[in-house]
Design a protein around this nucleic acid. Structure first.
Length: 249
DNA sequence: AGCACA
């Protein structure tokens, strides 16, 4: 009789334990960037109201993607803190409207214990994966160690001919003033990327919410586009080339 | 810890 009411699968994930210092637009972009690798993200909702700080709702197009994202991203680091990812309790308005079951907020009932038996297919209740153990080397102050690649960053690379044929992940975002970098080598920090991107007009800032991922902000889309065309595919190390895509504005 | 969307 395990009456532990674990929330049942939803399109929407409830993400908590987020660093409350992170500003809301940045947080939404970072979450979108993380989650879109597991499937199509319809929307990221974050509130700054009291009691809702450090939390967000990530709405997926389908439940399968949400489930995968939950299993993969629960416990992973974002802005230095391990994320807590679980299903949301309630269906998002975004989804209800798609289903045609949307009820305005005023008419909402409180939770009725009327759980009609939803026999979930609990055939394989996998215990947590636990494979991803974020080791304690997450200190970002690793500049003391030989970052010999810094020297390589200074000369601007020649523009590659192959512009758009580069790896578009599943990132179908339209052009925006935000660029995303994925699969960065772990030793790549914000300073290195800033050094690389500040050569281009309109550069604002670079943030690395998690090792390997960064977003680079420009003042407008054309400037971001130029930097993307010039720097996409740039050889960061002998093994790693810079992978750039557009981020959600 | 904590479950919103106007």
């Amino acid at each position: 009789m395990t009456t532990t009411s674990i929330s049942q699968p939803h399109n929407t994930l409830y993400v908590s334990n987020i660093d409350w210092k992170v500003k809301k637009p940045m947080l939404k972009r970072a979450l979108h960037m993380l989650m879109t690798r597991h499937g199509k993200v319809l929307e990221v909702v974050a509130l700054r109201k009291d009691g809702l700080r450090g939390q967000a709702f990530v709405i997926f197009d389908d439940v399968t993607s949400a489930t995968e994202a939950m299993q993969q991203e629960n416990g992973t680091l974002l802005f230095g803190k391990p994320l807590k990812v679980q299903y949301a309790l309630e269906k998002s308005d975004r989804i209800s409207k798609r289903d045609g079951t949307y009820v305005p907020k005023a008419k909402r009932e409180k939770k009725t214990n009327n759980n009609s038996n939803n026999n979930n297919s609990n055939s394989q209740s996998e215990t947590n994966v636990g494979r991803e153990n974020p080791s304690t080397h997450s200190e970002m102050t690793a500049t003391a160690e030989g970052t010999a690649t810094t020297e390589n960053l200074v000369p601007p690379p020649p523009p590659p001919n192959a512009t758009t044929t580069t790896t578009n992940n599943n990132n179908d975002q339209p052009p925006s003033h935000i660029l995303f970098a994925t699969d960065l080598p772990p030793e790549c920090n914000e300073m290195m990327l800033a050094m690389l991107f500040r050569q281009y007009t309109g550069f604002v800032e670079v943030r690395i919410p998690r090792a390997g991922l960064a977003f680079i902000e420009f003042d407008d889309e054309p400037h971001a586009t130029l930097a993307l065309q010039r720097l996409n595919g740039f050889q960061l190390t002998t093994n790693d080339a810079l992978k750039l895509t557009y981020g959600k504005a």
